[in-house]
C-alpha cells in the first residue's frame, strides 16, 4: 500500500482544518450568546479571576462576548479567516493563561466559559483550552477551503 502523497496530505489537512474551523467558530458563537445577554454575571466572572483592573471589568464584559461572536462568525463564514483565527487564538491564550493563573492561585471559581454556574476550574479545563488552542493553530496553518471572501473576490476578479 502506497503512502499518500503530498497533495493528498494537503487536502486531508485542509478538510480537517475546515472541520476544526466549523467547530471552533460554532463554539465561540455559542459561548458568546449567554454572556451577551447577561453582562453583569459575566463581569462577576471576570472579576473573580482577579486579572483585569476593576475599571476595565465591565467594559470587558460588554465587549468580549461581541468579539467572540464576530470572530466566530467570520471564521465560520471564511471572511478574513486568518485574522479571525489569530484573534480567537489570542483569546484562547489569554483564557488559558487566566485559567493557569487561577489554578496556580488556587482560587475556587468556575470557569465562566459558557455559563455563570459551572464546575470550578480544574486541570481538565486547562487541557480542554489547550486542545482548542491547538485546533486554532491547526486552522491557522492549514485552513483554505470554502472561504466566502475568497470566493467573492474571485468573482470580482473575473469581472
Amino acid at each position: 500500500m502506497n503512502a499518500p502523497d503530498h497533495k493528498t496530505w494537503c487536502r486531508l489537512h485542509a478538510w480537517l482544518a475546515l472541520a476544526f474551523r466549523v467547530y471552533i467558530g460554532g463554539l465561540f458563537i455559542y459561548a458568546s450568546i449567554y454572556k451577551i445577554n447577561y453582562p453583569a454575571e459575566f463581569a462577576e466572572t471576570i472579576a473573580s479571576y482577579q486579572v483585569v483592573p476593576y475599571f476595565l471589568v465591565n467594559i470587558t464584559a460588554v465587549v468580549l462576548p461581541w468579539i467572540e461572536l464576530i470572530t466566530g462568525t467570520l471564521l465560520l463564514a471564511g471572511i478574513r479567516p486568518r485574522a479571525a483565527t489569530a484573534i480567537l487564538g489570542g483569546l484562547l491564550v489569554l483564557f488559558t493563561l487566566a485559567i493557569a493563573w487561577v489554578l496556580f492561585q488556587g482560587v475556587p471559581i468556575g470557569c465562566g466559559c459558557f455559563h455563570t454556574i459551572e464546575d470550578p476550574i480544574s486541570w481538565k479545563t486547562l487541557v480542554r483550552d489547550l486542545a482548542w488552542l491547538a485546533m486554532t493553530a491547526y486552522i491557522f496553518a492549514h485552513d483554505r477551503l470554502f472561504h466566502l471572501e475568497e470566493h467573492f473576490m474571485m468573482k470580482l476578479k473575473e469581472l
Binding site: N37, A40, Y54
Partner: peptide, 8 residues
C-alpha cells in the same frame, strides 16, 4: 435591560 454600567 440587564446591562451594566461601563464605569466603576
Amino acid at each position: 435591560p440587564s446591562g451594566v454600567g461601563l464605569l466603576p
